[in-house]
């Protein structure tokens, strides 16, 4: 895509086409235990991460970055991208978290897992805020792309990436205030710490891509 010739509408269309598919992770037939809920959530996250990489590669400008910068951006933002996706899926369902179409959790189910209720409440509160502000789908797409492009604590220098940024601004310019708020709402620290503690306590085995991403975050934090 020649970014200089792309209209904001076309850019939003590109983001729409980049959207990952819905991931399914069936709910266990028995009531949740701490281990089974964490297992469902980590399985889902691992599957979603694979799709997230495909999504990122379709964000204009991203693949022009060095592999090193691509890794750095994704390692910084993956939990926030998972969270905003969850919030968007849950926006029309007060009190529920739609992790997947077949994994809908009520707030109180968070009581199964030590420490997760606080995170569920935070996610539900952020989702209600999105609902109150009437977050539109195209705004969601733009905010999610911004989370990716803004995620590294180091400056990622790329002419194409800054032009991507410029393309993201017009669709969001209608309501810059609320959209800046959306960016501030999405914080992943608590979720990351919780997942790390669940892994350290051996409540759930964390493997594959999710393990890599969690380790990357942990190493950077030290």
């Amino acid at each position: 895509i020649l970014l200089s010739t792309v209209s904001p509408e076309q850019f939003v269309l590109t983001l729409l086409e980049a959207e990952p598919p819905n991931v399914l992770v069936s709910r266990p037939s028995k009531p949740f235990t701490e281990a089974s809920m964490m297992m469902s959530l980590t399985k889902l996250a691992d599957k979603e991460l694979v799709h997230m990489i495909g999504w990122a590669k379709k964000i204009p400008g991203f693949v022009d970055l060095s592999l090193y910068d691509q890794v750095r951006l994704l390692e910084s933002c993956w939990m926030e991208v998972l969270m905003i996706g969850l919030m968007w899926r849950s926006i029309d369902h007060p009190g529920k978290l739609i992790f997947a179409p077949d994994l809908v959790l009520d707030r109180d189910e968070g009581k199964c897992v030590e420490g997760i209720l606080e995170i569920f409440d935070m996610l539900l509160a952020m989702t209600s805020r999105f609902r109150e502000l009437k977050l539109q789908h195209k705004e969601y797409l733009c905010v999610k792309a911004m989370i990716l492009l803004n995620s590294s604590e180091y400056a990622v220098a790329s002419d194409r990436l800054s032009r991507s940024h410029d393309c993201l601004v017009p669709p969001c310019a209608v309501r810059p205030g609320p959209l800046t708020c959306f960016l501030f709402f999405v914080h992943s620290n608590k979720g990351m710490e919780h997942l790390l503690s669940m892994k350290c306590k051996n409540v759930v085995p964390v493997y594959d891509l999710l393990l890599e991403m969690l380790n990357a975050h942990t190493l950077r934090g030290q």
Binding site: I53, G54, K57, L67, V71, E75, L209, E212, M213
Partner: peptide, 13 residues
Amino acid sequence: SHKLVQLLASTAE
């Protein structure tokens, strides 16, 4: 981050 790099480097979606 081996798998991440692998997935980023692969051209197939």
